[in-house]
Structures are given as C-alpha cells and as structure tokens.
Design a binder for these strands. Structure first.
Length: 104
DNA sequence: AACCTGACTTCGG
DNA sequence: TCCGAAGCCAGGT
C-alpha cells in the first residue's frame, strides 16, 4: 500500500455522516487528480481492514457508481439513513450534501 | 515485464 | 440530458 492509498483511506475515514464525497475529489485531495479509479480499488480492498464508510463515496455527478444491484441499493439505503436525499433520478446534490475537508 | 480489469472522469455526438 | 468511446492509475495474473 502506497502513500496515495493511505491518504485516501484517511480522507474517507474523515467523511462525516450525512455527507458524501466523489472518487475524483478524494483522489485529488490525496494528491493524485487522475487517480479516481484507484479510489474504487482502495474502497474494495481497504474497507474491511480500515472500517471505511464506503457508502459515503459516490460518482462525480452525485450518482452511485456501483454496478452490483445489491450494493447499489445497500449504499442508497445507508445514505438515506444518514439523511442523504436523492432526487428522482437517484442522484445526490453535491452542492448541498457534498463534503470537503477544508470547508465545514 | 506485458496484459487485463475496475464502485472513475471527461469529451463528443 | 443521455449514451458510447477514450484516457488514466495502480493492483492482480
């Protein structure tokens, strides 16, 4: 595991309930704007070990990126429980519910 | 070392 | 706004 991955893990662990972040944003904050796809890998492999709130990470347009139907609905359910609201197209308003470490 | 894969992002039609 | 293709990064085989 390299510094980039470690950084991503730390960032994800900092996402508070009721807020979400995108893969691209996390990658950029971790120091690699092009490493969005790496974030997905990190979530899949490090979630178990680091107890990461993976459900608070969504696609660039506030859209859940999970292809698996079960996982998709699970994430939507978990987010709903934290107060995240979805529009008619199951998308999240990043302007209002997106999270950034520097702006609170 | 080379090739494949993915819970992404961005551009073009 | 929606869909398909291309680009990118790092891990796995």
């Amino acid at each position: 595991m390299n510094a980039f991955t470690t950084q991503i893990v730390q960032l994800i662990k900092q996402i508070p309930p009721g807020k979400v972040c995108t893969y691209g944003t996390l990658a950029a904050l971790a120091g690699n704007p092009r490493g969005a796809r790496q974030v997905s890998w990190t979530l899949r492999t490090q979630t178990e070990k680091e107890q990461l709130p993976w459900h608070r990470v969504v696609g660039g347009q506030g859209k859940i990126s999970i292809i698996d139907s079960d996982g998709y609905q699970l994430q939507k359910g978990l987010l709903s429980q934290e107060g995240i609201l979805f529009d008619d197209h199951d998308r999240i308003d990043l302007k209002k519910q997106g999270w950034l470490p520097t702006s609170h």
